[in-house]
Amino acid sequence: MEEFEYSKLQVATNDFSLSALIGKGSHGCVYKGVLGDGKLVAIKKQSIGLQILQDNSKLDNEIQVLSSLHRSPYFVNLVGVSHDGSTQKKLLVIEFMPNGSLHDLLHNMSTPPSWSKRLHVALQIARAVQTLHEARPSIIHRDIKSANIMLDCNWNAKLADFGLAVRQSESTQPVNPPCRPAGTIGYLDPCYTTPSKLSTRTDVFSFGVVVLEIISCRRAMEVGQEPASIVEWAVPLINGKRGGIDVCDTRIALPGNMEGTIRCILNVAARCVSSKEENRPLMAEIVTELESCMVRPIQYPVWQCLLRSVLTRRKKRKTIPTTTIIHPTHQADIHVDHSRGKLLVREVLAEVAFN
Score class of each variant (00 low, 15 high):
R167V: 08
Y6P: 04
V247T: 04
S68N: 07
E222N: 05
H83M: 06
M294S: 04
V209M: 06
V129C: 00
S292Y: 10
D37S: 14
M294G: 02
L78M: 09
P297M: 00
D55E: 10
I52H: 13
W115A: 04
V247E: 04
V273G: 10
S116V: 12
M294W: 03
S82P: 08
K276H: 12
L159F: 13
L307E: 06
V34N: 10
I48S: 12
L40Q: 05
L132F: 04
I252F: 03
G256E: 10
N239C: 03
R242E: 13
G25N: 09
G23R: 04
I326Q: 10
L344F: 08
G260F: 07
C272A: 06
E291C: 10
P195K: 12
I43G: 00
Y187L: 11
R346F: 12
N154C: 01
V204S: 09
L188G: 08
R71F: 09
Q225L: 15
I48D: 14
I325W: 03
W115V: 01
F16N: 09
L164C: 00
H141F: 15
H83P: 01
Q64W: 03
D333S: 15
L311E: 09
A332Q: 14
I265T: 01
D249M: 05
K145W: 00
G186M: 03
H338F: 14
R127M: 10
T288M: 11
E285W: 06
H107P: 09
Q299M: 14
Q51S: 04
I252S: 12
G224N: 11
V41D: 05
E277F: 00
I215M: 14
Q64R: 13
A135Q: 12
E232Y: 10
I149S: 04
P301S: 10
D333L: 15
C305D: 14
R346Q: 15
V223G: 03
E62F: 02
A122L: 08
S7E: 11
D161Y: 15
E232C: 09
S86M: 10
D15W: 12
T172W: 06
I334T: 13
A126L: 03
N14W: 06
V175G: 00
I139R: 05
S72Q: 03
F354A: 08
T319R: 10
G183I: 06
M283I: 08
S47N: 11
P297A: 01
I125M: 13
M294E: 07
S309L: 05
S146I: 02
Q130Y: 10
I230E: 05
A126V: 02
S17F: 06
M97N: 06
C29Q: 07
